[in-house]
């Protein structure tokens, strides 16, 4: 799965760089939302097929916020510590980390706030977070626990990296993952606003 994902990514980048414009490739990019919708529908079916899962989620109550809380605090503290070792202002490092993988939004907003260079760092860094998540998730599922698979994914845990949760964890974690993605995505603009 990871190798297939890597091949798809590299193949896409190469075709994007050297492929002709205005072909079916661009149509795929323009309509990629529909692929995501189909994926979400299919993931919903998987969850629905698994009887008793929603009951279990209800049992968690307030505990369902534990994972997003850990992801947000961990990202901000991790970004803060890392930026102490980098030649950039600490607050800007925290702002980049606050994107939690949402590269499109963070890249655009930080370019606006701190200039094009920081915008590019924000874009690349959050994109790398998403890509690295693909490779961390199988290892975390084997060596730590299923819930922790959601941690690297951050705000992307409701869409792109969700399929990795489907593959490497269980239905309960998949539902937690969607919930985490929604909370984190809502928090990203607020966190960046504080920076």
């Amino acid at each position: 799965m990871v190798l297939m994902a890597l091949a798809a990514l590299i193949g896409g980048v190469l075709l994007g760089l050297y492929g002709p414009a205005g072909t079916i490739l661009d149509q795929l990019v323009i309509h990629s939302d529909w692929i995501l919708y189909l994926l979400m529908f299919s993931v919903g079916i998987s969850v629905g097929l698994h009887r008793g899962i929603l009951q279990k989620i209800k049992e968690y109550h307030i505990k369902i916020f534990i994972i997003p809380f850990g992801v947000i605090v961990g990202s901000v503290v991790g970004g803060w510590i890392t930026s102490l070792f980098l030649p950039i202002p600490t607050i800007q490092g925290v702002a980049v980390a606050s994107g939690m993988g949402w590269y499109s939004l963070t890249g655009v907003v930080l370019a606006e706030m701190y200039g094009a260079s920081m915008g590019s760092v924000a874009f690349l860094s959050n994109l790398m977070r998403e890509i690295l998540s693909f490779f961390c998730i199988p290892w975390i599922a084997r060596n730590l626990n299923y819930y922790t698979c959601i941690a690297p994914a951050g705000a992307t845990s409701e869409d792109t990296t969700l399929s990795m949760m489907v593959r490497y964890t269980d239905e309960e974690t998949v539902v937690m993952s969607v919930f985490n993605g929604i909370i984190c995505s809502a928090v990203v603009p607020i966190l960046i606003g504080f920076c």
Partner: peptide
């Protein structure tokens, strides 16, 4: 700035 926040989370 990708690895630090991943490890923290």
């Amino acid at each position: 700035l990708a690895v630090g926040p991943i490890i923290g989370s």
